[in-house]
């Protein structure tokens, strides 16, 4: 078990390093000249005069060969230094540190609510005995995965905040301002979880242990909830880990819809101003979150499903 855990942690660190490297070279190689892009800023039409450009290059170390820039940046990452923002002139690590709190809160709550809603919906779908109503209910997740996050957010904003005047439309303070963003973020997640889980429940239902439990005289509801659903939850657990990345991206969109402070705002203004160090920092943090969540899922899996541990 410890050997497995150590191997997984090592793999995770390797993937994180590779993700950082890949993004670094994507950011600094794709355009013809990173310095020119950043010096021109959001206004990409105006040209920068050569003297300013040279001064800019020297200031940010962009006059050095790319591999030296990369090694310096990577060395900085190990010391917790993600470089300096071109646009604001502040350390990237501090900018992200300030913004990450609200985003992680939003994403974590979105995941929690999404998983609970999705599981409840899946159990409800599979509990409906008649074919017609069950099929009707099963279309709910199919519709849910077709609705973009920002649409859910805009509809909630229009109906709940503007029509009914119930919850605050904008702002990022207090519990009340979190309700609508969390709902907007969690509904597409819930739809995905419900779709996977209801399929998984249907598959488990025909397993022999379910028949045996029924033959022992347990009630159908008891067999369904205590045996079938419990086993069917395992794939949904893996799925939830994989959705962490989507949630991270989704919270950027939701933060824009509800004008909330957070990583989304930092990321978007960085893309608009073409502030490459900040973008690199945001992607590193996003990949880090995804890798850590999935590492946790992998490490918890043997505890939830003893068969995995035996197989290894």
């Amino acid at each position: 078990m410890t050997g497995y855990a150590l191997r997984r942690v090592g793999q995770a660190i390797l993937v994180l390093w590779a993700a950082y490297t890949l993004t670094f070279f994507a950011v600094f190689l794709l355009p013809s000249d990173a310095a020119e892009i950043m010096a021109a800023g959001s206004d990409s039409t105006n040209s920068v005069d050569p003297a300013t450009l040279a001064e800019f290059r020297a200031r940010y170390g962009l006059d050095q060969p790319l591999h030296l820039q990369y090694l310096r940046a990577l060395g900085g990452v190990f010391r917790g230094d993600l470089g300096t923002s071109i646009h604001t002139g502040r350390p990237v690590a501090r900018m992200l540190g300030e913004a990450i709190g609200p985003t992680v809160t939003l994403a974590a709550l979105g995941m929690l609510v999404g998983v609970l809603l999705g599981a409840a919906l899946a159990v409800a779908i599979t509990l409906v005995p008649r074919r017609g109503p069950r099929h009707l209910l099963a279309t709910v997740p199919a519709v849910g995965i077709s609705v973009p996050t920002f649409c859910v957010g805009l509809v909630l904003l229009q109906v709940v905040s503007f029509q009914w005047g119930l919850l605050p439309a904008f702002g990022s303070s207090g519990f009340e301002s979190l309700v609508l963003p969390v709902l907007a973020l969690s509904l597409p997640v819930a739809a995905l979880i419900a779709q996977l889980l209801s399929k998984s429940i249907e598959a488990e239902r025909s397993a022999e242990y379910a028949d045996i439990a029924l033959a022992k005289g347990l009630s159908r509801l008891r067999v369904h909830l205590a045996h079938v659903v419990r086993n069917a939850l395992l794939p949904a657990f893996t799925m939830a880990g994989l959705l962490a990345g989507e949630l991270f991206g989704g919270s950027i969109v939701v933060e824009t819809v509800f004008s909330r402070a957070g990583l989304g705002r930092v990321a978007l203004s960085a893309v608009q101003a073409r502030d490459l160090p900040v973008i690199l920092g945001v992607v590193t943090v996003g990949a880090c979150v995804f890798i850590v969540v999935n590492l946790a899922v992998d490490l918890l899996y043997p505890l939830l499903d003893p068969r995995i541990a035996v197989a290894r």
Binding site: F248, A267, G286, F290
Partner: peptide
């Protein structure tokens, strides 16, 4: 491992 929206933003 990189969230798809972030990859697009890069």
């Amino acid at each position: 491992a990189v969230p798809s929206l972030l990859l697009s933003l890069v």
